[in-house]
Design a protein around this nucleic acid. Structure first.
Lengths: 200, 200
DNA sequence: GTTCTAGTGAACGGCTGCGTCTACTATATC
DNA sequence: GATATAGTAGACGCAGCCGTTCACTAGAAC
């Protein structure tokens, strides 16, 4: 792990404040991606960032607080999506947003949710659920609702259950196959599952 | 944890052989259900079973070997399902098989797969993937194929992708909401997602 | 009863990681 | 330059767990 550290060389001039914080977050993010949540330790992050644990504990109370900060800094937000108004295109955009969120963290977001226990309302649950999963569901529902109004989507399909089908397929792929979700998989989920399910 | 041990009282007469092995597996299963995979330790299992670690290590090389044995003893097998020939009924049976597999182990099966890394081909991956997920997918494909032949299922739907929709919904529920998957949820997945998707 | 085997209970050494603390000091600010 | 703050590097005590070993002994088999 020391070999993969972005700042393994002795640091002659000290980073302070925001610069150090960024280096720590980046180091933590890298460990999260490469080794996953369960193998991330405060000591490992400190070593990878070329600093001491005390500098971490000055900012974050514990591992999960640090990981939450990492997730909040890297998770894409579906509010930033530029939806087109085309049902297929928009579903693809949203699904790729979910896929990218997973890829950025090697599925750690889901590990954390399960580690905390669902419904625990922990900080990380909020970061992941409220930042990615819930907004994506709302976006999908909006896409379906608009499609129903335009007549291209079957009435009655704008339900949370149906909105969960796409994300469910991605989560299953993550759990069973791995966090590298190929884009063709996303496309086929939209074309062979979602569109047949919702079309008028 | 000692308070929840089924055999917390001092054991006056020693169990030997199969009886001890059963007690250990049951203790491990209980810890798996209550605390999850990451919190299961060999010491904890030994304490809960009222025995010593040496007795565990005489039988199982390490934690994962023990957990594999637990899973193999509790996971239901879809081969045991009595399918009816009715598409809806059979999909419900298979889906409940998956749901029950998850409930029996508090979702630990999935934690283990992710801990090992998908595609690692580890023993636990084999126990879960080959015993539950792959057979269920095959059963679903068989149901779809038979439905197509009878004309009640749309041609072209007997694909692995569509066969994964139902399991995907359950896995998502596990990850996001929790391992207590209500039976009405399973029923609505079949009725509101699967049947609309596949009907002729 | 004798012998053998596996179970019991405890201890051990080793490792990892946590969270905290300290002496020193780089660096920003005045 | 003087002061204050945060960063550095290391050490510490603690807890937990692993895997192994040992002396003793319950209990099966003969």
């Amino acid at each position: 792990m020391a070999q993969s550290s972005p700042v393994a060389a002795p640091v002659r001039s000290r980073r302070r404040g925001e610069a150090l914080e960024q280096a720590i977050l980046e180091a933590a993010h890298q460990i999260l991606r490469e080794d996953g949540y369960s193998k991330l330790t405060m000591e490992g992050v400190a070593a990878a960032a070329g600093t001491g644990k005390a500098a971490l504990y000055r900012r974050w109370a514990d591992k999960d607080t640090l990981v939450t900060a990492v997730l909040q800094s890297v998770l894409p937000s579906p509010q930033q999506l530029r939806l087109t108004g085309d049902v297929r295109e928009d579903l693809l955009l949203i699904m790729c947003c979910i896929r990218n969120a997973i890829g950025l963290t090697n599925g750690a977001a889901f590990d954390i949710v399960r580690h905390e226990g669902p419904g625990s309302g922990g900080l990380v649950h909020k970061a992941v659920g409220q930042r990615v999963l819930d907004p994506c569901r709302r976006e999908i529902l909006a896409v379906l609702t608009r499609g129903i109004a335009e007549g291209s989507v079957r009435p009655g399909t704008a339900t949370p259950l149906i909105a969960d089908v796409g994300p469910g397929m991605i989560i299953q792929h993550v759990v069973v196959v791995g966090t590298d979700v190929p884009e063709p998989f996303v496309v086929s989920v939209v074309d062979e599952v979602l569109l047949p399910l919702i079309r008028a």
